[in-house]
Design a protein around this nucleic acid. Structure first.
Lengths: 144, 144
DNA sequence: AACAAAAGGTTTGATATCAAACCTTCATGC
DNA sequence: GCATGAAGGTTTGATATCAAACCTTTTGTT
């Protein structure tokens, strides 16, 4: 009954989704960007500016990782730093014009991805899948 | 309806599972082993010996990655190489006695993990979850 | 006011991972 | 029987990622 390969399936779905995103970005002319960079950009699409710590929390990565990721995004000209006026420790990250221009591409890829993820499922099944995943995810939180 | 956060949930479940495995291994005195090493060991628990290429296929990693992983497992004394007699290109990897001794630990962790993954789900829900994940996974295969 | 503790970020060091290039060895075609 | 290609593995170079240590600035305590 409980075959126990859900985790294996989860891992493979995640990897395929990652590869899909990377390939789509390349096809659309965006090179050198991996999903974690995309996660940061997506956060910035829906807010003016965020601190490094905030970004780290939102994309579920550590601060050193975000430092590296942001450096690359700066290098590519997609985001820029802005020192806080009130707290000299704080650095804000915000999109550049070039960064904003990526939004339609990301929207497109996101749409395609959802098409793959939910395309063959009924609305009921989609809700069921997310509900089940949510319960498993919560179970981890209370167990660990 | 289709909220579209299944992928996010999938990523988080996978990361929590990974952390859980690593921590459990450490608790049981097995250090420096990450899930990919574990994947190789698990393959070896259920077969006498495998080539590098076979291991790579089974754990869904590339050959260079498996080279690195196996080197570490050899270093820890859990596996050993065995040159093929019939084909000088081929190297077989097999468990050492010390490697075999890890099996009960892995079985235990696997049990605990399944407890977290399926513990709060009915049999029906477990089957449903795996079925839905299977369909999403297959959809990726035919789409990409 | 002064010192300790906390918070924001970066640097360092390590590792898993992959793509591309490479070396051996085997297989295949002529 | 020999050359060309295919297959098994490793090496190289690059990157995302994290933990731990570190620096700077702010906050809190006495």
């Amino acid at each position: 009954m409980k075959q126990g390969n859900a985790l294996s399936l989860i891992s493979r779905i995640r990897e395929k989704a990652t590869k899909f995103i990377v390939r789509e970005l390349e096809v659309q002319g965006v090179k050198g960007i991996v999903p974690s960079h995309g996660d940061i950009l997506v956060v910035l699409f829906y807010g003016e500016k965020f601190t490094m710590r905030e970004l780290a929390e939102k994309i579920h990565r550590t601060k050193p990782t975000v430092t590296v990721l942001v450096e690359k995004l700066i290098q590519y000209g997609f985001v820029e730093r802005e020192k806080s006026q009130t707290d000299n420790r704080v650095t804000y990250i915000k999109l550049t014009k070039k960064g904003f221009e990526l939004k339609p591409i990301f929207d497109d890829i996101s749409g395609k991805l959802n098409g793959i993820l939910y395309g063959d499922l009924t609305d009921e099944e989609s809700v069921s899948l997310e509900s089940l995943l949510n319960r498993v995810n919560s179970k981890f939180d209370i167990t660990i």
